[in-house]
Computed example of a mutant assay.
Amino acid sequence: MRLYLVDAFTSSAFAGNSAGVVLLDEPADPEWMQAVAAELKHSETAFVQVGTADGVPKPLRWFTPAAEVDLCGHATLATAHVLGGDQVFTTRSGLLRCTAAEDGVRMDFPADPPKADPALLAEVTPALPGVSPGEIEYVGRGVSDVLVRLTNATLVRELDPDIGAVARIAARCLIVTASGDREDVDFVSRVFGPRVGIDEDPVTGSAHCTLAPFWAEQIAKAELVGEQASQRGGIVRARPDDDRVWLTGAAVTVFEGTLLV
């Protein structure tokens, strides 16, 4: 089987979020896919069945080193990049359409806008040492993740979360965000997901299904640019569209080879 490693949401190698992409000619055993993802140790490994008839959506699944997930943006971007931009995938989150764009690949994802939930403050505060309750402007929950808005980007960039406390929050991931601190960035974010085996995800496309509708309402812009301020860092361009979100990013293939087992 063909195996690729792709840096997604970046135009430079060794930045953005790295994903494994495995091309399958037929369906694979989930336990085997989980074992491959654990071996590769990337935040996500995508498994796409390419032996389908023309015009038939390709089955696509995503695994962290610890679990299968319902939606992954950067590994979808990586897969579409490997296969050639214009693709339709059938997934646990429904049909996902990707199209080639001048600046990379544009993906059509389901929106997951958050709903304010002040009661979550008691769970969130212990996970954010050094952040006072007065510096937390918003706490809400989407279907998958909990979203916290802080008063400024510096708090997000310098945050050293208590990962044990993050893991006790009943959500796939904790998204921490603030308004952008550069002219070319509308908002910054970081994403922590110890429950799915990722203490901090470098760049999280699916989190922008929550971030994009939230920030579009906050700053009344149709087209948004988000910076995920992890150590590797990355840029996600987002456009909310009713119950969907268009996410656009670049990608770079850094390795290709053959999976032997």
Rank of each mutant, 00 (worst) to 15 (best):
residue 113 P to M: 04
residue 202 P to E: 11
residue 255 F to G: 08
residue 208 H to Q: 14
residue 125 T to Q: 15
residue 224 L to C: 07
residue 132 S to E: 15
residue 34 Q to N: 06
residue 17 N to F: 08
residue 7 D to M: 01
residue 65 P to V: 10
residue 108 D to V: 01
residue 117 D to F: 03
residue 177 T to S: 15
residue 43 S to F: 01
residue 29 D to A: 10
residue 163 I to H: 06
residue 47 F to Y: 09
residue 226 G to C: 14
residue 197 G to C: 03
residue 116 A to R: 15
residue 215 W to D: 06
residue 32 W to D: 05
residue 140 G to Y: 01
residue 82 V to S: 01
residue 64 T to F: 02
residue 214 F to A: 05
residue 103 D to S: 15
residue 1 M to R: 06
residue 46 A to R: 01
residue 185 V to N: 07
residue 43 S to Y: 02
residue 238 A to F: 00
residue 19 A to V: 08
residue 232 R to G: 09
residue 138 Y to Q: 04
residue 151 T to H: 06
residue 134 G to S: 12
residue 244 R to A: 08
residue 235 I to P: 04
residue 80 A to D: 08
residue 29 D to R: 05
residue 156 V to F: 08
residue 173 C to D: 12
residue 84 G to F: 05
residue 229 A to G: 11
residue 222 A to H: 14
residue 168 R to H: 11
residue 107 M to Q: 12
residue 254 V to H: 12
residue 25 D to P: 05
residue 226 G to A: 15
residue 50 V to T: 15
residue 114 P to G: 00
residue 132 S to Y: 01
residue 13 A to F: 06
residue 147 L to N: 07
residue 10 T to K: 01
residue 130 G to T: 05
residue 103 D to N: 13
residue 19 A to E: 07
residue 187 F to N: 03
residue 51 G to I: 10
residue 66 A to W: 05
residue 118 P to I: 09
residue 81 H to D: 02
residue 6 V to L: 02
residue 111 A to P: 11
residue 63 F to T: 03
residue 124 V to C: 05
residue 72 C to N: 08
residue 165 A to W: 05
residue 77 L to R: 07
residue 260 L to P: 01
residue 137 E to T: 14
residue 41 K to L: 09
residue 164 G to N: 07
residue 219 I to A: 11
residue 92 R to N: 12
residue 250 A to K: 00
residue 170 A to N: 12
residue 144 S to N: 13
residue 31 E to M: 06
residue 47 F to I: 11
residue 49 Q to R: 13
residue 101 A to E: 12
residue 121 L to V: 06
residue 182 R to Q: 15
residue 22 V to I: 14
residue 194 P to N: 10
residue 96 L to P: 04
residue 203 V to G: 04
residue 165 A to T: 05
residue 98 C to F: 02
residue 209 C to F: 03
residue 201 D to S: 11
residue 64 T to W: 00
residue 206 S to Q: 05
residue 201 D to N: 10
residue 198 I to S: 03
residue 238 A to S: 14
residue 169 I to R: 07
residue 11 S to D: 14
residue 28 A to L: 13
residue 60 L to N: 04
residue 127 A to E: 01
residue 261 V to H: 10
residue 57 P to Q: 13
residue 226 G to F: 03
residue 39 E to P: 04
residue 67 A to Y: 01
residue 200 E to H: 11
residue 7 D to G: 01
residue 107 M to C: 04
residue 130 G to I: 09
residue 250 A to I: 02
residue 83 L to R: 08
residue 223 E to T: 10
residue 202 P to I: 00
residue 257 G to N: 13
residue 142 G to T: 09
residue 50 V to R: 03
residue 122 A to S: 15
residue 93 S to Q: 02
residue 33 M to C: 14
